[in-house]
Design a protein around this nucleic acid. Sequence first.
DNA 1: TCTGGGGTCCTAGGACCC
DNA 2: TCTGGGGTCCTAGGACCC
Length: 420
Amino acid sequence: MNPTNDPMAPSPSRSHPPTRSPSPHRRILLLDCDQFFVQCARIADPEGAGREPLLLVGGSPERRGVVTSASYETRKYGARSGMPMARALRLCPQAKVVPVPRELCGIKSREVRAVLARFSPVVEAASIDEAYLDMTGTEALYDDAPLEEVARRIQAAVREETGIAVSLGGGTNRLIAKLASGLAKPAGVHVVPAGEEAAFMRRFTLRDLPGVGPALADTLQRLGLATVEHALERDEAWMIRNLGERRGAWLYRRIRGIDSTPVEPYVEPKSMSREETFPEDIHDDDALETELFALATRVGADLRREGRRARTVTVKLRDADFRTRQASRTVPEPLESDRAILAVARELLARLRAERRTGARLLGVSLSQFGGPTGGQLALFEEEAESLETDRDRALSRTMDDLRARFGPDAVRSGRLLDR
DNA sequence: TCTGGGGTCCTAGGACCC
DNA sequence: TCTGGGGTCCTAGGACCC
């Protein structure tokens, strides 16, 4: 099967400028900032972090932190992002540990995106340090230069204007671009020509594929499959029999380099959350409620800042033994006030605590189901909705937001919003 | 080794409706 | 009395990504 003839591929028109020679396939780039948080930490502190090759960016071991980004030099010792900082430091004791420079990372990320916006009208920020660009139909803009040449221009512009070193992968779809970017690092460009997708895929292990994590890799290993090469020998029916309808069909396409997922400039968020891992487990219910209050008001402020309301509140609790449990409740009328969010969250936390009473390692509050009320059932629950949140609650939360905006986050010590 | 914080998507069962 | 199928919503848990 030829991935470039994928009938699911979106038409390349959209808002693109007219093109002299419309290409029969898409041209997709993935830009990935090299060790992004390490680069930001070095820009933030040129004299300190900037001069230290052995640099680990992330949470301190005392706070049970993990590595957010490990410098290339520390990776030689086995340090990796996502690893507990305590372990990374055992592997590389000479390393300097610095916290993530959050604000600067946000600034740099926006700067990079601003550069990319000049190169394509279709840019999707996949994460703080990654973006997909759909370059389909922009050939004329770049004098029909090959995709690789365009990628190098983007790379140079980003470096010049933001000081951030990036790698780019390119191909006829997102999967190919993503895998190619891995080969491009550090500070390189790798473009897979149209028509060579299937051959390109043969070099990877199954675990290399985005979407294949430890669990699926394990399952596949038990089925006798470790590499793309191996998996290509099985037909689709075999995949579906062993992995299920959806996953089987998905993997069958994936190992052939087929991916019709479009590049989407903006996707509405579906949830927002705040959570915290405590330096030490919390056993006391009152202390836990104090943390719940802080988290609920933070996520509530986030919600109102985005002008949203939410119908579902979820409380997440991680016990001392790392078992994670959650409880959620969906109400008929969307909420936005701290008092209402907190009222639901307290009830959910009480339920989780009643089911299992051990030390709490992590607590989180998440909001989802944004938007209007459900139809139909509305009348039935009007009274309950009214008791959950009143105009007065909403007004109070907005006032608090204003005060914090004017006088700082600690301006208002709102004692017991809990009790009205 | 001792495991962050912010997300997305999928599955599966039960309730409820037609 | 016993037995349908499909759709949607809600809840809980898990996999996965950066």
